[in-house]
Write a protein that binds this DNA or RNA. Structure first.
Lengths: 239, 239
DNA sequence: ACCTGAACACCGTTCAAGT
DNA sequence: ACCTGAACACCGTTCAAGT
């Protein structure tokens, strides 16, 4: 066949932990978690499966590293020093939240991996990264010091939970076929909810209509505002 | 060896999807996700690996079924019709929340599985189960109809996020050795946070002290109260 | 020090054969 | 209709051998 179809030989520069992790993220994005294989990864890096083990301990470490890399990039996207005059702490929190939300959208494998890692080691390397970027905004908001932990945790947990459910939205829509868009998809879910058992699901049936035409991002931000309102109600800035 | 050590032959009653799922949950609880194997499962059920495929389509369906079974049990534990006079909607929400929180504590594999399933099909079978039990309490709280979806979603997402991080707390503590209890473990994490890079983690370092001696369940409920306060602030009952 | 690639143990899944 | 268990394809990981 044409030599053109062949992947260019990327093996100029030497194998590196960073290059391995980058390739792993690419593979996760394109072929999913099941597609991330040491053999596939090795092929992509123009090397053998065994070579990878010189740089990473094993698959679970590789997944951890990929997760941390993506999270770090997501929270680092937010400007630490806001330059524009319009950047209030509230907007800062929204920016951090949307940064993570967007990352889970771009990387459908992220949310489950994050959950797996947080439950394996709840205070490992990735939690402080998220906690820190949220916490700075909480601090800027004027929340009293005693409530920093509670307020930041609540925000972080809401964000992780919401991002988790909205993660693979595009993928889910795709299962309905390429031509079917998000609105159509939500419409179908809404209809499905409306035909649930009236005895078992009275509330869900009644709320199903609000799913129709709702915007994920808007809904996500509405939840952020809810938590923020709770924070100012229960932990108002000390004057 | 002694015949006593052998597992009693459980193969009186026929193989059933329910028995398979129950055995899967047991296996997940005792040996973890990696330990759940069709061969191990078959042995426990005194049958061959192939037999299981007559009742479940494959491993991912098995995991989904196990997750749904545990979630259903967790939210069903809450009395739908409160009998005691002290049971306010707020207490009802706390009860539902603690039910899920407890389930993730008893089943360390639950939170990652839940995340995986929700991100694969965000509005699948398991989401309405949780949504319904939370939503009923939201409704009882007097939240106006237009805000049902927003309020219930926010609560659900907070609960899922928080439960996810607190899931394997006991397990994590165990990695420090059987004699080391939770307080000691949190103390170590707190110390670790305090020695993070001052430039990268100023907030986390400052908040680390609040981790010491904090109670997971208390912290979890404090977050619930935060969201509830936000709900009453932004979506007060229509009088 | 870093890479190669064959080999090992194990797993999900299938399927012809049984009852 | 339901179960059996050998067989297949594939995967994570190891390791003697190379450079």
């Amino acid at each position: 066949m044409a030599a053109r179809t062949r992947r260019p030989d990327r093996r100029q520069e030497p194998l590196t932990r960073e290059r391995i992790v980058d390739a792993a993220v690419e593979l996760l994005d394109t072929v999913g978690e099941d597609g991330l294989t040491f053999r596939a990864l090795a092929e992509r890096l123009a090397t053998g499966p065994g070579a990878i083990y010189w740089h990473v301990a094993g698959k679970s470490e590789l997944l951890s590293a990929a997760t941390e890399a993506v999270v770090t990039a997501a929270v680092a996207d937010e400007p630490t020093e806001p330059t524009g005059p319009a950047t209030s702490p509230r907007d800062g929190i929204r920016a951090v939240a949307l940064g993570l939300f967007g990352a889970t959208e771009r990387h459908p494998w992220l949310a489950p991996q994050l959950a797996a890692q947080l439950s394996r080691s709840p205070w490992g390397a990735v939690a402080p990264r998220i906690f820190e970027s949220i916490g700075r905004q909480v601090q800027a908001l004027g929340v009293p010091r005693d409530s920093w932990f509670t307020a930041s945790s609540a925000l972080m947990h809401y964000i992780l939970g919401a991002a988790g459910q909205n993660a693979a939205n595009t993928t889910s829509a795709d299962t309905f076929g390429p031509g079917v868009d998000r609105a159509r998809f939500l419409d179908e879910v809404s209809t499905a909810w409306e035909s649930l058992d009236p005895d078992e699901y009275p509330f869900t049936r009644a709320a199903a209509g609000q799913l129709r035409g709702h915007d994920d991002r808007e809904q996500f931000l509405a939840g952020i505002d809810l938590v923020l309102a709770g924070i100012s109600a229960l932990h108002p800035p000390a004057s």
